[in-house]
């Protein structure tokens, strides 16, 4: 789904854009969001929508806190060295995955959708939930954009992105900014996961696909370019959906792969990325 993919990819892109950290564990934050969504949904009494709403609030907070802790305990100590952090986040990926396997188990478990109605169009049906997911993802992305462009927190993030040392010389606690950005990136993945679990079950290995797809999106859009990430997510998500429906999922994957290869060869900085 394009909308959910966009949320996940924006999280990855934001972290890279501000911190220059390629977060290989990003998909595990997605998985962690889905798994905690299952826990919350099964433990909150009442109708499905109550558990779902609770998950939508609690999961990003929990996953964001885990991410902030990982940032302060690991990434900060590596001084955000681009290569060392790749290795470290691979380690983080493994730890999160094995923890989920131990605590949650190997089963895939469903989370009920908060509501079930659908719109019937002459040629196909749209489930109401899927529409709601698109609307919710769009609202969250708009919120991120407003945060970055219209608020002081966003200004501080952008200044830190441009020049960390000078930001510190102007009173910005860049350690806090980094922890916050890493947490925000993870929280976006977690929100995407909460939105997706009623459609796709929660499973401890579910982080791989969104990680790969996010990288694809981010490569096409240009690492660190949020606008590029959004456009690429929509193009990839929509074309994947359309081609899968009318032709075959395999063809969709092949075309996407060719597209990525083409971008890498002809425009390695991404469609919207600035030349390094």
């Amino acid at each position: 789904m394009a909308a959910v993919l966009a949320l996940t990819a924006v999280g990855l892109s934001l972290v890279f854009g501000v911190m220059r950290v390629v977060n290989v564990a990003h998909g595990e934050f997605f998985m962690l969001g889905a798994v905690t969504a299952w826990f919350v949904a099964t433990h909150v009494p009442g109708p499905p929508w109550a558990g779902f709403l609770a998950a939508l609030v609690i999961c990003p907070l929990v996953v964001g806190a885990v991410a902030a802790a990982a940032d302060m305990a690991v990434l900060k100590r590596l001084n955000y060295d681009p290569e060392a952090t790749i290795v470290a986040t691979i380690g983080l990926l493994y730890i999160l995955q094995q923890t989920a396997l131990t605590v949650y188990g190997p089963e895939a478990r469903p989370v009920p959708a908060p509501f079930a109605w659908s719109i019937r169009l002459p040629w196909f049906g749209w489930s109401g939930y899927k529409l709601a997911v698109i609307a919710a993802a769009a609202a969250i992305l708009l919120g991120v954009w407003l945060l970055l462009t219209r608020t002081r927190a966003g200004l501080v993030m952008r200044a830190t992105q441009v020049d960390r040392e000078t930001a510190r010389a102007f009173g910005i606690d860049t350690d806090r900014v980094y922890a916050g950005v890493f947490a925000l990136g993870a929280a976006l993945a977690a929100m995407a996961a909460v939105l997706i679990v009623p459609i796709q079950q929660a499973h401890y290995l579910m982080g791989h696909d969104p990680l790969l797809l996010s990288f694809v999106v981010v490569i096409i859009g240009g690492l660190g370019s949020l606008r590029g990430t959004l456009v690429a997510a929509l193009v990839i998500g929509l074309s994947d959906g359309v081609i899968s429906v009318f032709f075959s999922p395999t063809l969709a994957k092949i075309l996407a792969t060719l597209f990525v290869a083409g971008v890498l060869v002809f425009r390695p900085q991404g469609l919207f990325g600035a030349r390094a």
């Binding site: 002081r152 501080v156 200044a159 000078t166």
Partner: peptide, 14 residues
């Protein structure tokens, strides 16, 4: 060492 992509107003705001 200005914040180059940021506007004049935003640099002052920092």
């Amino acid at each position: 060492r200005l914040f180059g992509p940021l506007t004049v107003a935003e640099n002052l705001e920092i």
